[in-house]
Design a binder for these strands. Sequence first.
DNA 1: TGCTGTTATTTGTGATCACATTTGCCGATC
DNA 2: GATCGGCAAATGTGATCACAAATAACAGCA
Lengths: 245, 245
Amino acid sequence: MAALEKIYDRKPSKEGGDNEPASDGNVAMHEQVYERLREALISGRLSPGRVLSVRGIAAEFDVSAMPAREAIRRLAARGALEFTGTRRVSIARMTEDKLDEIKAARLWLEPTLAERALIRLDGQPRDRKKLLRELEKIDASLDAAIRRGDANQYSQYNSEFHFALYRASEATVLLDLVESLWMRVGPFMRVVIGRLGTSCLTDDHHKEIVQAIEEHDPDALREAVRQDILHGMDNIAASDFTAEG
Amino acid sequence: MAALEKIYDRKPSKEGGDNEPASDGNVAMHEQVYERLREALISGRLSPGRVLSVRGIAAEFDVSAMPAREAIRRLAARGALEFTGTRRVSIARMTEDKLDEIKAARLWLEPTLAERALIRLDGQPRDRKKLLRELEKIDASLDAAIRRGDANQYSQYNSEFHFALYRASEATVLLDLVESLWMRVGPFMRVVIGRLGTSCLTDDHHKEIVQAIEEHDPDALREAVRQDILHGMDNIAASDFTAEG
DNA sequence: TGCTGTTATTTGTGATCACATTTGCCGATC
DNA sequence: GATCGGCAAATGTGATCACAAATAACAGCA
């Protein structure tokens, strides 16, 4: 293992005995592995180019080969992982063309999701208030992470902020598409922040997003989301994303 | 097996001996199974609600459980298959909301892909001519299928027509997204055609698409693709898609 | 020291087994 | 005749093994 970056912050060390059904909660192990890997991808805890081996993941997550295999397969199917020529699988590298495609797709999908969320919440004032509080809380944690210079926490909270909003749209299909895009960009946020520092993250547009929701202004919301995406994607484009972290 | 619809038109009956490496061509078996299933989904050869079991697919494709398992897992990861409450997996059923999301996404993605293809081909007159010929050929086969009333062939050629165009954009990320959408709608084309007959398919906009490419007219192309999508999606919406075929 | 060819290890893939859960079926009961 | 209960078959999941291919490590030579 040695110098290999950890994918997750070690399992919460089973609090009870050792023979319990692995805190299974009736969710399959391959599902848990998938979820953790997805989360690690989106919040940029995995470096571009890194090769994921079945046995390696299995060892790190303390499961047998089978669940690791299935989790990796699922991620690869969603485009989050890339097949090398020889059947191995790795975190995809970025190209200018791919970055441009992702940017274009995000610029349509995410404002659309945000707007749908807003429209749906117009009829649900209670849910709307709840979402606003949630967004504000996440954004506060996010700002704190920036001030601390904690890149990992930043990526984490940033994705939480966006997906909390998008999830409120209840548009599962569109959400799926966006998620697959975030899994592709995630690994590069880490690289960018490593190069430019957290200072480049201070001028996001989360405040405008929250404000637009408060004011029931769909157009302003779309524009705020749009600007936030542009801000993030242009940071990546400005960085040398072709090299690995 | 009995009354169970066949997913594919029986393996081309190994022409030689029986011990050859399964015509492997260095492509993994799970890959072959995945490819066939994907194709079956897109061209509507699988009915909504149908449950796919690992052993069932394995038997039908004459492979062991493992490749079937991985193929199913990958399709599920892309949203083409749906998890029932009890870990089983089936062709998803459609809802009005999901159909609306798919329609919206397609209406942005596919005109974009078409336009990108057109722009890219502006610099490649040879490829452009080749694509035009290919599209015209497919469209001819498609019309023939309609006249024959052959719904399966129609769906097949229709997807080929669109993806031949989109693939020319070389936009792999966007293409991935569109493909996942087609896998979700595919199963319902069969249902629609079953209800409305092939007569409802005659007024597609393929001719306009070809013409717009010939005339280097991006706006006309976008509009033609848009109309073609509307035509198809409204047919689904008009049908009773909540029931299974 | 730098390169090369060989060996040892790791890895993906497919197969098969075990087990708990679920599904489908059939007969008993009201 | 419809409903319920229980039993048998089918299914998803995880584990483990075998094998070929690919990667890494290393020794020998220039």
